[in-house]
Write a protein that binds this DNA or RNA. Sequence first.
DNA 1: CCAAAAGTGTTGGTAGTACACCCATGC
DNA 2: GCATGGGTGTACTACCAACACTTTTGG
Lengths: 241, 241
Amino acid sequence: MISLRASDHIPQLSIDCVIFGFSQNQLKVLSPKLIFKGDFWSLPGGFVRQDESIDQAARRILEERTGIKDIYLEQFRVFGETDRSNLSFWDRLTELNGEAFVAEHFNRKELEWITKRFVSIGYYALVDITKVIPVKMEADASVEWYDIQNLPPMIMDHNQIVAAALVSLQQNLDQKLIAFNLLPETFTMNEVQQIYEVVLNKTLLRSNFQKKILDLNVLERLEKKFTGKANKAPYLYRWAQ
Amino acid sequence: MISLRASDHIPQLSIDCVIFGFSQNQLKVLSPKLIFKGDFWSLPGGFVRQDESIDQAARRILEERTGIKDIYLEQFRVFGETDRSNLSFWDRLTELNGEAFVAEHFNRKELEWITKRFVSIGYYALVDITKVIPVKMEADASVEWYDIQNLPPMIMDHNQIVAAALVSLQQNLDQKLIAFNLLPETFTMNEVQQIYEVVLNKTLLRSNFQKKILDLNVLERLEKKFTGKANKAPYLYRWAQ
DNA sequence: CCAAAAGTGTTGGTAGTACACCCATGC
DNA sequence: GCATGGGTGTACTACCAACACTTTTGG
């Protein structure tokens, strides 16, 4: 039985997290898939306990899924249309899995609580994908990274939430210098550029990009990185603010 | 008796609106003062009905207070600390006005509903101050414009909400070209500059400002405005997008 | 020595800043 | 005429895009 402990939480208010990671020159989003029949993907989300702030709730949800405590987090928008509810998703779930099967996992009171209209606060997070060990929750069949250009169809308006998060990320990339949160402790300039290119969805001139980033004076240059490739070894950099 | 019709609304979720206006070379914020003893100022706010979206709720609240239908509106942040509740305000209210007086205006069920912890969605609005006729609601003693630099002390965290709204307005001023929403249909270039100066809190060079705004190609130049003053008559402009 | 990628330098255009100059108007 | 504020023009600077050149490395 999946417990929501409804009474401990603020009703009709949820949090949805778009967790961005970067690997293989692709921007990725973490998405759990539910155990039920029917290919239900979603965003990692949850509810706000009465005794925690909304930021704390978002951090708790992120830590539950990724195991990481200090995560870069940004609240980017609230989704509050009148038709935002789990109801149609739930109908389809029941249709495909049978009333009895669903009843095994949720009691009636919780079902009533969770199928109401929900206002959802959208957060996006930037993580070093190498540090994340995706954690399956009770109702998860899998928790995987998906290319943002190739996301599975998600329940409710979660695909739109991802799209809105990406727009917000694009706007903040230069202004808040947050790209480095997607990288490990040390990285090469080429890796930074790849993030900029894939987030902004356009190619950048290498020489100009290098100059621009170095002129920010936020990076510390370390020793060179031996790659074993037939070219000059690139420097490693570290965020030094 | 002030009716909240609690059951029709999403519990523990509120909307607070920072309504910006511009006059006498000052940025103003609209703030109602409550009828009760004790100088309680607040932001125009309200709750979200089950049958309306959060944007619709914000528009309804704004229309109730200003009488204007088409208002420029921007959702800028959610405030969700655990200690966000009306409780301490309510205690002070009761202390100053007496239990009996408060009981005249609110029944117990509503009191219980309204003194819970609330998560509040912050919106800011830009209005042509000449079109606004501030409307007093049931519990309002007055609804006045206050200079943003000289706001009265407000209940809860409303002063901080105003501060956050101003930061957001500053960031969006150039990017979204929203300053014109604070002006009447036609205006002079000097009026636009005054808005920029008071919002950004710095002086700008007149000649460069004029060039920058005109180069945006978003204004239509109309006939000259006769001011009766001892100087060249300025052009009138109109937003032409 | 060559290809490939990294690092740095040079050039030209554009946008922003500071300031100068002229124009209209009422006293 | 003169002070005042409005409109436009000019020089200087800073930044950014495009491209060229040099350096390092493995084969």
